[in-house]
Amino acid sequence: MVGSEDTGTAGLRILTPEDETALRDWLHVHNTVIPTHRLTLDEAWDRAGRHRLEVAYLGDTAVGSSTVRPPADGTRTATVIARVLPGHRGRGFGGRLYARGLDRARRLGAETVETVVLSSNEDGLRFARKHGFAETERYVLPGETVPWVDFRLR
Rank of each mutant, 00 (worst) to 15 (best):
E144S: 09
L85S: 02
R100E: 05
G64K: 06
V63L: 04
G92T: 09
A72D: 07
A72C: 09
R83S: 06
T16F: 05
L141F: 13
A22K: 03
T16G: 11
R69N: 02
R50P: 01
A134L: 06
A48G: 12
R107P: 00
L141S: 05
T67S: 13
L12S: 03
F127S: 14
V55G: 04
T77M: 12
L85M: 12
T9E: 10
F93L: 07
G143Y: 09
D150P: 01
A110F: 09
A134V: 12
L58A: 07
R91L: 06
G94P: 04
E18H: 12
A48W: 07
V2P: 07
V113Q: 05
G49P: 14
H37S: 04
R24A: 09
S65V: 01
R106G: 00
T9D: 02
A110V: 04
G3P: 05
E135C: 11
T77L: 07
V84G: 06
Y98N: 04
T61D: 01
L102V: 12
A72V: 15
R13C: 03
T40Y: 12
R96N: 04
L12M: 11
L153M: 08
N31H: 09
E135P: 05
L27P: 01
R96F: 01
R38N: 10
W148Y: 07
G11P: 12
A44P: 04
R83F: 07
T115S: 10
I14C: 02
A110K: 02
V117H: 10
D60V: 08
D42E: 12
P35F: 14
F151V: 06
V140F: 13
F133R: 15
E111Q: 14
A72Y: 01
D103G: 00
F151S: 00
R107I: 11
E111M: 02
L58Q: 09
E114C: 15
E18Q: 14
G132K: 15
V63G: 02
W26M: 08
P86C: 11
R152E: 07
R107E: 14
R76L: 15
E122V: 13
E5D: 15
I34C: 08
G94D: 11
G132H: 05
D123M: 00
R52Q: 09
T16N: 02
N31M: 07
R154M: 00
E111H: 07
P70S: 09
V33Y: 14
G59D: 05
G124A: 11
